[in-house]
Design a protein around this nucleic acid. Structure first.
Lengths: 213, 213
DNA sequence: TAGATTGTTAATCGATTAACAATC
DNA sequence: TAGATTGTTAATCGATTAACAATC
């Protein structure tokens, strides 16, 4: 559907745009300028991002909120419910099982796995924890296309392999390590240590600059 | 210290390099080629990234693991312990309080806050939960420079304001909303919904392409 | 029609990749 | 010395910004 190759940052911004207009009245009309002001972008950026996918606005007027929401949801593929499996039911895993920030209609955790026998069989948020060994069999049965890895770093790669064997097409990896998977499977890393080290760099740099004066 | 403006992705990669060589023998010598092979980069990228900060290698030989670790840790400011405050002791917040992926020597959560009276006074991982109203007073006392926001979206902005008032220089925001803070304060968003929507886009796109054939 | 704002093209900026002289 | 690999410069690629004709 997109005319040309779409930069990944554009997709990220579409999510942000969608969230920004979520509470606005469907009948409202919004200019790219106004939408840009709600966020940290420019009007040109907004128009460029949207124009990859079609002509959603009316020259001289702007974008109708209702139409924009619908189009962005369509582009992002949010009209289906994606089945997800979560592997590693530690503290972070359990927190994500109950995480209210996920849209339940669009993203549904349908299975949870762990290799700790004391966790297997327990039920969290209506989801029974199963043995990681069962991942490849169970995923196709529940039409699971996305895997979430919240195991320790040491287990992440083998878990990723099992998820791929189970047919997932996307993986969200929280384990503090890099994993390798076939290139047809989309990988997103959520790297908390990296984020903190990044803050550390900037804070440290600033204090050095101050000291130099 | 850096010669020119350093791209943010370079800083991110430095974290990745550091993790990749963590377990290697300090005496080993590594070429940019070998380091690149451990990750998804090229040798040139590795050399370029490192060259922003100095000449750490020996032509004809490579980089000594011990020296490289030391230099990267220095660049990232990991020789201090950064004091952190966590705000919002829900499931995600509690998970982060115990998260084993954080390096405790470098990043220490010294205070936790919530506005729910039933949570205030409880102790998690040796940290007592206090009233969010106390943020501005307590942060300077504990030398806290980094704030972590794990509140619902609705509370995120006011919490950010309190953190800034308390003197933090960096914020890691997990709330599914964008917050605005003075530009001297470095902000990092960890946007889980956005990550999932991103996966959704790619999965959806692939299935469409397949259908087109 | 006059005013406003889109969609798009061209100009700019910045990061990645290629290539190679300098150096061990 | 010959071989290897760095640090760096130049070429390429891609994304952002500026500008404006087309359109309501």
């Amino acid at each position: 559907m997109p005319k040309f190759k779409v930069p990944e940052v554009t997709i990220e911004r579409l999510s942000i745009y969608l969230r920004a207009i979520k509470r606005l009245n469907e009948e409202n009309i919004l200019s790219s300028q106004e939408l840009a002001n709600l966020l940290e972008t420019s009007d040109g950026q907004v128009r460029k991002d949207l124009a990859y996918f079609g002509e959603f606005g009316v020259p001289g007027q702007g974008y109708k909120v209702g139409k924009l929401k619908k189009e962005i949801r369509h582009i992002l593929g949010l009209n289906t419910t994606w089945g997800m499996a979560l592997v590693g039911v530690g503290n972070l895993g359990r927190a994500l099982l109950i995480y209210p920030g996920f849209k339940r209609n669009e993203f549904e955790i349908r299975a949870a796995f762990d290799k700790d026998p004391s966790k297997i069989g327990k039920v969290w948020q209506g989801v029974e924890v199963q043995d990681v060994e069962n991942i490849p069999q169970i995923l196709p049965l529940k039409e699971i296309k996305i895997g979430i890895i919240t195991t320790p770093a040491s287990a992440a790669q083998e878990v990723a392999d099992k998820l791929v064997k189970g047919g997932v097409k996307g993986i969200l990896n929280f384990a503090p390590t890099r994993i390798s998977i076939p290139k047809e499977v989309k990988l997103k890393n959520v790297d908390l240590s990296m984020q903190l080290e990044n803050l550390s760099y900037f804070l440290n740099k600033r204090s050095q600059i101050r000291r130099q004066k």
